[in-house]
Design a binder for these strands. Structure first.
Lengths: 196, 196
DNA sequence: AGTTTTAGGTACACGACTGTATCTAAAGCG
DNA sequence: CGCTTTAGATACAGTCGTGTACCTAAAACT
């Protein structure tokens, strides 16, 4: 490892380790996550990892807790459709970030521990005011532009579900046309907005 | 292994191996899939596996190709809503079968090979006449009960997306109430059916 | 400066999985 | 029945990850 002159410590070191853990999880999935690979990627000794964490999953959860939180959609003046598309775009961007891909790999792991999944939701999503389109839809319902009775859990989740499935199917990020189609053809009709 | 009196051969043996591969993939995910575990579960020698397949993924793909095909929704007389719910129920049942969980684990694997995913779609889904709700919606559109113009790719995929996300979120099978909510609150409005 | 903390590095024994070689005997054929 | 095919079993060397022990020296504090 050639022991360069400086030796990282504290936050610098932690950040490097967390970044390595997220990258490994995002690339390999939780099934192939190893202390060894994280240590190599972070250019530190395995010993250093074992001093703080007992296994790769333990480490990964800490890394996710420290990761940048998901950006909040900021509903604008009077553009429900545009704000919905923008909130889905936020979701797509997050989903393709290192942390996002690590989370999705975790959620889809057949060997996942329910307790871990729950902890994850608390740390990553519950900090924010709900999910992506949910924030926007609630905003316009509060303004009277939407019927609050239509905003059931199912309706609030349509956008997220469609984007997640699309990513699962194609493996790539949906473009704006597709996001607009989701909004126009699925979310708005379900929310009771009459279209042309 | 105690070498019981009889020795399996041909189809019997293959079936046992395929079942073991699917079970392993469904439980552990593709990342943790090993020749060793498959051989142990099928109660055969690793040697036997290496005679036919070069690695666990190769074996798994053959196993999926041989797996029972997904059941077809059979749209009935005149019950669009009921048929949609039934088709989603079919999807849920399939998703919790061994083969279904193996496929989902494959699709969600961050290290997945796009070529493998494509081969999978051809083998598992393209044999059938489209996806679950799609079959039903097309049937009623052909009968004039639905406007064919509303049946865009997005609309045809709403049910599948909602069910997939629900399974991902909760890890459990949605009950009929939830499936009905998906149909009433998401699919039917998007398909242009006026509700009460 | 001296002292404490802790990262970097080496080494080791252990287990899991790999891929191949080799032998045996059961299954299925004529 | 004799012959061919092939499943079952064992063995082995090699690789990779684990978890621990141990030493060293850099970083940070007094």
């Amino acid at each position: 490892m050639s022991e360069s002159r400086t030796r990282r410590r504290g936050k610098d070191l932690l950040d490097a380790i967390y970044a390595a853990a997220l990258a490994e999880a995002a690339e390999s999935g939780p099934g192939r996550l190893t202390m060894d690979a994280i240590a190599k990627r972070a250019a530190t000794a395995r010993t250093t990892l074992y001093r703080r964490w007992s296994d790769p999953m333990d480490l990964l959860l800490d890394a996710l807790a420290e990761a940048h939180p998901v950006e909040q959609p900021a509903p604008g003046a009077d553009d429900l459709r545009g704000d919905l598309i923008a909130s889905l775009r936020l979701m797509v961007d997050w989903g393709f970030s290192t942390a996002g891909r690590a989370v999705m790999a975790l959620l889809a792991d057949p060997a996942r521990d329910p307790a871990i999944v729950e902890a994850l939701w608390e740390r990553v999503f519950d900090k924010r005011g709900g999910t992506f389109t949910q924030t926007v839809l609630r905003h316009y319902a509060a303004n009277g532009a939407l019927d609050p009775a239509r905003l059931t859990p199912v309706v609030l989740d349509i956008g997220e579900a469609m984007v997640a499935k699309r990513i699962l199917d194609t493996g790539g990020a949906p473009d704006d046309d597709y996001l607009a189609a989701i909004v126009d053809q699925a979310i708005l009709p379900a929310a009771g907005v009459r279209d042309a």
